[in-house]
Nucleic acid binder design. Structure first.
Length: 212
DNA sequence: GACCAGGCACATC
DNA sequence: GATGTGCATGGT
């Protein structure tokens, strides 16, 4: 059985605490989770800055605003038309069902909330889990493309593994600890940016000594 | 200029 | 059910 704790310790020693999610409020996390889909975070920061400066970083405001106007505001994040539509569909759900109140989301059991989020067009497993973990502080492990490359290249999962397989791998081999899941995923992104690019540089990875 | 980024939905076979 | 494609800006 893989000693995930030692992977975690190596990463934490090497990179230090990542202090995710970089946002001021849970709602900002949710918006950022949609904006960062397949996009560099630096681009998302610009889009969030725009939303803040226009006073739009608010569930009711985003629910009311015209989609094309929203697209202009989030332009730096890329895929702006797609993401404007996704933000609108998320707000339609969040505002009409929960009044745009984060506290009301917290009343719902995690499993049911995850299912509801996945029904929102534009929210897939990673975005849903990011919202659960980083906005609502629920102990759900977030997987992503870096996680996939790391697990498959280290021979911990086969290349046929899907999202749920990755998530299950972590959740079954670690204590269900919100803070641990938070930091671990962020550290995987940190090591991923440096060493888990499509063109691998695994020979210099800080986890190299754990490769078979 | 090529490559890539903290995905997802949809078309097509 | 698997596989391919569109979406787009901005940093390296």
């Amino acid at each position: 059985m893989a000693d995930l704790k030692s992977y975690y310790k190596d990463l934490l020693d090497h990179y230090g605490p990542q202090r995710w999610w970089p946002a001021e409020t849970p709602f900002e996390v949710m918006v950022g989770a949609i904006l960062t889909q397949n996009t560099a975070w630096t681009n998302v920061e610009k889009a969030i800055r725009n939303l803040k400066s226009y006073g739009l970083l608010d569930p009711l405001k985003l629910h009311e605003i015209d989609q094309d106007t929203l697209a202009l505001a989030i332009r730096p994040a890329g895929y702006f038309n797609v993401k404007a539509a996704r933000l609108k569909s998320f707000m339609a759900w969040f505002v009409t069902r929960y009044g745009g109140e984060v506290e009301r989301l917290k009343q719902i059991p995690a499993q049911r909330l995850r299912e509801q989020l996945l029904e929102v067009k534009g929210i897939g497993p990673e975005t849903a889990d990011s919202i659960l973990l980083y906005a609502l502080e629920l102990p759900t492990f977030v997987a992503d493309t870096y996680t996939y490359r790391l697990l498959t290249r280290h021979g911990l999962l086969s290349e046929e593994a899907g999202y749920e397989d990755m998530q299950e791998f972590f959740e079954k081999n670690l204590p269900r600890d919100r803070a641990l899941f938070n930091e671990f995923h962020a550290l995987i992104v940190a090591v991923g940016k440096e060493f888990c690019r499509p063109k691998a540089r695994c020979e210099q990875c800080p986890l190299r000594k754990r490769l078979p």
